[in-house]
Simulated scan of single mutants.
Amino acid sequence: MLIAVISPVEDSLGAELLALQRAAYAIEAELIGDDRIPPLHESLEELRARPLQWLGAVDEDGRLAGAVAWEETGDEVDVNRLIVHPGALRRGIGRALVKEVLVRAGARRVVVATGRDNAPARRLYEGLGFVLAGEVEVIPGLWIANYARPA
Rank of each mutant, 00 (worst) to 15 (best):
L44Q: 14
A145V: 09
D117T: 08
A148Q: 11
L17H: 03
D35P: 15
E45C: 02
D61V: 05
R149D: 06
E28F: 05
A19V: 08
D78N: 15
L64C: 08
R149A: 08
L128M: 11
E76G: 03
L52R: 06
A96D: 03
A67C: 15
V9Q: 11
I37D: 07
E135R: 06
G129V: 06
V112E: 05
R95C: 06
M1T: 13
A29C: 08
E30D: 10
A113D: 11
P120W: 05
S12Y: 01
N146K: 13
G62M: 07
N118A: 06
Q21F: 03
V68R: 01
E10Q: 14
G115A: 10
G127K: 09
E126K: 05
D61G: 13
L132R: 10
G134F: 00
P140L: 06
M1W: 03
G94R: 03
E28A: 15
V58Q: 09
Q53K: 11
W143V: 03
D35R: 06
E72I: 00
E10V: 14
L89K: 11
W143D: 01
I27W: 00
V111A: 14
L128C: 12
E42T: 08
D35S: 14
G129E: 06
G94Q: 03
D75S: 08
A88Q: 14
G87L: 10
V79R: 09
E72F: 00
D11G: 06
A121I: 08
E126F: 03
H41P: 07
R95M: 04
A119D: 12
A67L: 12
L20Y: 05
R63F: 06
L128S: 13
L124I: 05
D78A: 12
Q53D: 14
A29P: 08
V9E: 11
P140Q: 08
V84T: 15
Q53V: 12
R104S: 02
G56P: 04
R91I: 02
S43I: 03
D11Y: 04
V68L: 05
R104H: 04
V136L: 10
G14Y: 00
W143R: 13
E72C: 01
P39H: 04
R95I: 02
A23Q: 13
R149H: 10
E10R: 11
P38Q: 12
N80G: 00
A69N: 13
E100A: 15
I6V: 15
E76P: 02
G56H: 01
A133R: 07
N80L: 00
R149P: 09
L132T: 10
L124P: 06
L97P: 11
A67W: 07
L55V: 01
L64A: 09
S43P: 07
A105L: 01
A24M: 00
K99E: 15
P86T: 13
Y147Q: 09
V138Y: 00
F130P: 09
R36G: 15
V98P: 02
G127P: 11
E135C: 10
W143C: 03
P39G: 09
L124Y: 02
A24D: 02
A145I: 07
I3F: 04
G115M: 09
